[in-house]
């Protein structure tokens, strides 16, 4: 056999690095044999032995590091999920995720983006709706941490808007703002975990939370239903006048909400579309 070309070698080694067991199992796999015959790999025709290591042992240095590195990335983003699942179940979930969703991005900060959706499809997990939303909350925290910087709107810049113009404006929300509604009290659960209270699986109770970054810290703000609905509409880019209709009989609170949310940097500017009234 001729020496492997670079592409075949890299595809072969990629399989070796990613194999969940070890290098020997990898080079014996059907996929790896497509690129390099097992016999050549096993007998030092591809990777040379060293004075102290056989070729498979040398490949195992790379195989061993891959899984642990990526699981560590997930571990750092989802401490609450680890608590909820337990270390053993978390490890197997993370291992499966690494196998099903190989990293496609140069930056590891994106690696766990699909974990909440991955959990949602895992029928073997107890209370997976809760686990999915807890993972979503922790992922939103990570996204808020890395979101682009933004400057909060100066409310004084809106002083001269007429009531009609207020109704038409579309507010620009902070790029860090995320909203999560869950049938479970995931934010309370996460806070209990951060407070070292060893929380148990919670009973169902709808919760709503805004996640955003202010002063380089990520904050989680619990919201009731009317406030959540108004903020959701604003985040979706709807006109202020349309968004506040969701407040219903809580409309009298809109001034306070706007003041608080502006102070927290949730709005960065606004667009005033032309008046289309005939």
């Amino acid at each position: 056999m001729t020496d492997p070309d670079l592409l075949s070698l890299q595809r072969w080694m990629s399989l070796v690095v990613q194999h969940p067991k070890d290098a020997q199992a990898a080079v014996r796999s059907k996929k790896a044999k497509q690129y390099i015959p097992t016999g050549l790999a096993m007998h030092g025709k591809v990777v040379l032995p060293s004075s102290r290591m056989e070729p498979m042992a040398r490949l195992d240095v790379y195989n061993g590091g891959y899984l642990s590195r990526l699981i560590d990335v997930i571990r750092s983003d989802f401490p609450g999920l680890i608590h909820a699942l337990g270390e053993h179940a978390f490890f197997h979930l993370a291992q499966d995720y690494v196998e099903k969703h190989p990293s496609q991005h140069a930056n590891l900060i994106f690696f766990a983006a699909k974990l909440p959706g991955f959990i949602a499809k895992r029928k073997d997990l107890p209370k997976r709706a809760f686990l999915r939303d807890l993972a979503q909350l922790e992922w939103f925290i990570s996204e808020a941490f890395h979101a682009p910087a933004s400057q909060a709107i100066d409310p004084a810049s809106m002083q001269n808007l007429s009531p009609e113009e207020w109704a038409r404006i579309a507010l620009h929300c902070s790029p860090s703002l995320r909203l999560l509604e869950s049938p479970y009290p995931v934010n309370g659960y996460l806070q209990s975990f951060f407070d070292d209270k060893e929380p148990e699986f919670p009973a169902r109770a709808i919760s709503r939370v805004a996640i955003y970054r202010k002063d380089f810290r990520v904050w989680r703000l619990g919201l009731d239903k009317p406030a959540f609905q108004v903020l959701s509409k604003l985040l979706a880019g709807e006109a202020f006048g349309t968004a506040i209709e969701c407040a219903g009989d809580q409309a009298h609170r809109i001034g306070d909400w706007f003041q608080d949310w502006s102070a927290d940097g949730l709005f960065t500017g606004y667009t005033l579309p032309p008046d289309s009234t005939p």
Binding site: D3, D5, L6, L7, L9, Q10, R11, M13, S14, V17, Q18, Y62, G65, Y66, R69, L70, P102, S103, Q104, H105, A106, L108
Partner: peptide, 25 residues
Amino acid sequence: CWTGVDGTNLHDLLPIPYTEEALKV
């Protein structure tokens, strides 16, 4: 080094063979 192939990123500094082909690439 190389860090991945076919769009997958292995997030490791993987060795290359010191060949004319690798040099050209």
